[in-house]
Write a protein that binds this DNA or RNA. Structure first.
Lengths: 185, 185
DNA sequence: CGTCATCTACCTAACATTTGGTAGGTAAAC
DNA sequence: GTTTACCTACCAAATGTTAGGTAGATGACG
């Protein structure tokens, strides 16, 4: 793994735990095993690093979602697996979805970071919407609105589970969404 | 309004916009119209101030919820109004529910603040659960799980709407929850 | 009633630490 | 010999917090 990638991945982990505001150049450098000043050899500023992290985050998410619909061609089944993406963050050190954390911090985010955060939500909603439409769970007109609702609800579930450090709470919340009819059973 | 209350209310507004980490003693003092050092005449530390803010926040929420079930005795109708509490934060300067913001920051919160954040979620879930049970929307055993799901979903909707600075998005998300059957129509 | 001590609510001034960021150097790779 | 990848050493700003002081209100007491 190149140093560049090591920085991006450490920064991502930190940002998922402490947010953009809590992301700290010195600690970040320490985790990568270099000095703080060396970070600036790879990224011109914290803002640009943050934007790069957020960009890579949604790109990885797109890849995960594509892999998911490849492995699970039945859109209903793929949709059922969707919450796993958020679950994995919790498994991985009780971390939050970067998009959720940065949404909370949104007003204080540098402009380039804001853009990428928006895109993260967009790609999620687009994928969910496509699955809904293909599966015929709801009408085509409703599918985008429903996709947004699912995305927001799953993010909320992750937020709540995290504050209790309780992954099983996440599971029961998702199960409740299914029982209520928000997610396909 | 006493200085003490002025501090609490300004701190609350700031924390709802920037989080606990983004809450800043100097700026806070500036908004109240006193100097930073004077804050420490009223609160021993930022941590204790944060805890006081969070405590007052859920106390106010309890009062709002009680008023709501007084004004709207039919629990189904009261439940329908529940999202308004979150909507008001968005109306009031695109602010987030303090509980949501602090849930995101949870790992970095001082201990006294953590406790109050938990309580905020508890009182919300308790109220929603009581309404569900009284209204008979779901079985008594399911009502707590469903209450948690509703709380998490509404918080998620607020988070998403905020990052787009779009209150109407919040409304359509809530409407989607109703259509899907998560919230009573 | 007057005066003296105490308390309240604020202030100025500073301190230590943490932060993002820069200047300039070094040593190996190409 | 230029470029790459890192370093040491520093800076300026921001942050939570403290020390110590002041002006006015309050209350006790001769």
């Amino acid at each position: 793994m190149s140093t560049n990638e090591a920085i991006l991945s450490a920064a991502r982990r930190s940002a998922q735990a402490h947010g953009y505001g809590g992301l700290n150049i010195r600690d970040l450098a320490g985790e990568v095993g270099i000095k703080a000043a060396s970070i600036y050899h790879h990224f011109p500023s914290k803002a640009e690093l943050g934007a790069a992290v957020a960009k890579r985050y949604w790109e990885d998410t797109v890849a995960d979602l594509e892999a998911m619909s490849q492995e699970t061609p039945e859109p209903r089944d793929a949709l059922r697996k969707y919450p796993q993406i958020f679950r994995r963050s919790l498994e991985n050190g009780n971390r939050l979805c970067l998009g959720s954390f940065m949404s909370a911090e949104y007003d204080d985010l540098p402009e380039p970071v804001k853009k990428e955060v928006q895109t993260f939500a967009d790609v999620n909603v687009a994928w969910i919407g496509k699955m809904l439409k293909t599966a015929g769970v709801v009408t085509a007109e409703e599918s985008e609105a429903r996709a947004r609702a699912i995305f927001a609800a799953v993010a909320g579930a992750q937020l709540m589970a995290r504050s209790r450090s309780d992954i099983s709470l996440f599971d029961t919340l998702i199960e409740s969404y299914r029982e209520a009819g928000l997610l396909p059973a």
